[in-house]
Computed example of a mutant assay.
Amino acid sequence: MRGNSLQEAGQTADGLALLIAGPTASGKSALALALAERAGGVVINTDSMQVYRDLRIITARPTPQEEARVPHRLYGHVDAAVNCSAGSWVDDAAAALNEARAQSRLPIFVGGSGLYFKALTRGLSAVPPVPSGIRDSVRARLEQNGVEALHAELARRDPASAERLKPRDRTRVARALEVVEATGRSLTDWHRDGLPPLLPQGAFRALFLAPERDALYARIDARFSAMLEAGALQEVAALAARGLDPLLPAMKAHGVPALIRHLAGEITREEAAEIGRADTRHYAKRQFTWFRHQLPEFEWVAPETARGWADGLFA
Score class of each variant (00 low, 15 high):
A182F: 08
N145L: 13
G146F: 01
A155L: 11
R139W: 13
K166E: 12
P131E: 05
G194K: 12
V173N: 06
A176E: 03
S125K: 00
T188Y: 11
R122V: 00
V179M: 10
P196L: 07
R185P: 08
V179W: 09
R156I: 00
R175F: 15
V127M: 03
D169H: 15
P167Y: 08
H191Q: 09
N145Q: 15
G123C: 01
P196R: 04
A162W: 05
S125P: 07
L195E: 14
D189L: 14
G123M: 02
P129S: 06
R157H: 10
R122F: 01
E181A: 15
E178Q: 02
S186W: 10
L142R: 05
L154W: 04
A149C: 06
S125D: 14
A155N: 09
L165R: 02
A182H: 09
A176T: 05
R157M: 11
P159R: 09
N145D: 15
P196F: 04
P131G: 04
L177V: 13
L154E: 01
D189T: 15
A149N: 08
P196I: 03
G146A: 05
P129T: 10
A152G: 06
R164N: 11
P167E: 06
R156V: 07
T183E: 14
E178W: 04
G194Y: 03
W190R: 10
R170H: 10
L154G: 04
R156G: 08
P129G: 03
A182K: 14
R175Q: 15
P159N: 05
A149M: 09
P196S: 04
D189K: 05
V147G: 09
L124E: 01
D169I: 11
P128L: 02
A149T: 04
E181C: 14
G194R: 14
R135I: 01
A126M: 04
L142P: 01
S161N: 03
T188R: 12
G123A: 00
S137F: 00
L177W: 05
A160I: 09
A162K: 02
V180S: 09
R185D: 06
Q144M: 08
R135H: 01
V179D: 09
R139A: 00
A160Y: 03
A160S: 14
P159D: 10
E153R: 13
T183F: 11
I134N: 02
E163P: 00
R185V: 10
A176K: 02
A176C: 12
S161M: 07
E163N: 10
T171A: 15
G146N: 03
L165D: 07
N145P: 00
N145C: 08
Q144L: 06
A152P: 04
R172W: 12
R172F: 14
A140C: 00
T183L: 04
P131V: 04
W190Q: 13
E163W: 00
S161V: 05
W190C: 10
R135C: 06
R168T: 12
R185G: 07
R168L: 13
T171Q: 13
